[in-house]
Amino acid sequence: METLELTQEEQFQARIDADIRIEPKDWMPDAYRKTLIRQISQHAHSELVGMLPEGNWITRAPSLKRKSILLAKVQDEAGHGLYLYSAAETLGASRDQMLADLHSGKAKYSSIFNYPTLSWADMGCVGWLVDGAAILNQVPLCRTSYGPYARAMVRVCKEESFHQRQGFEIMQTLCEGAPVQKEMAQEALNRWWWPTLMMFGPKDADSPNTAQSMNWRIKRFTNDELRQKFVDMMVPQAEFLGLTVPDPAVKWNADKNGYDFGDVDWEEFWNVVKGNGLCNQERLGARVKAHEEGAWVREAALAHAAKRKQRASEV
């Protein structure tokens, strides 16, 4: 009888197929490592840049309670960034390099943050829709094949669901309030609906890497599957709020047990990806500015630590 030996790569795939986690010290194909670093660092950058559109409103929040919840929420996003950078570091990426790639425009972050936040209702829409879409993207990643990533996502998802609830609650308060508040809520929904549908990425047909990522179980549903789930979840919630989703094509389809809906404006999608969104320059500019203006602080901390070490060795 002849025994067939599995190649390293086949063994790796066999572990993944058996839902056994890959850990930092395990062998992994280069392409798996590279794809994961790209995916995790993009996610980390999104948390970081994602602080800006909401951070905008911390100083203008309409009550002390809202101010406190919003500040805590944006602070959570900074925490998510930290967990994710740490997860990427277990793959051999350095935070400095990842940040340099963000600042140079080589690395991407979620395009949704290139849209402006114009009214208080945007804080509701961002929590309800944007964090809602993030949850759909991220909950499956709690079972992703790479251990440190999966564990980071468990922590992140717990907080994201709290974010989503507080966003929905802002919307609910507006919708139950004065007419001017309900108008504010509808106007914000009109602006955020389509961009959040874009958060799931291009159509499956235009997403060539999906198959490989699904094989590696670093992606567990296709873009279109997630987009459908999102619409099915959000349309009834909008109805509950008394708001109208700005898509006349939205209609219940009993055959597929889901909603039909219209097509995303893919030209806008690709434009924002390419850097032509209203806020691309401001968002990246703000990150670069914070990093550059923080350089002397980081240098001082290092210099001081070195002096201490020096002194300790002299004693």
Binding site: K65, S68, L71, A72, Q75, A78, A290, G294
Partner: peptide, 29 residues
């Protein structure tokens, strides 16, 4: 302090500044 949120010199200090801001906000309330 909350004006720093998202603009700190390093992520860890961004978190610390927001933390302190939250403490003061809670105390103010």
């Amino acid at each position: 302090l909350s004006e720093w949120c998202g603009h700190g010199p390093i992520l860890e200090q961004d978190l610390a500044l927001a933390n302190i801001a939250l403490d003061f906000l809670g105390e103010a309330r």
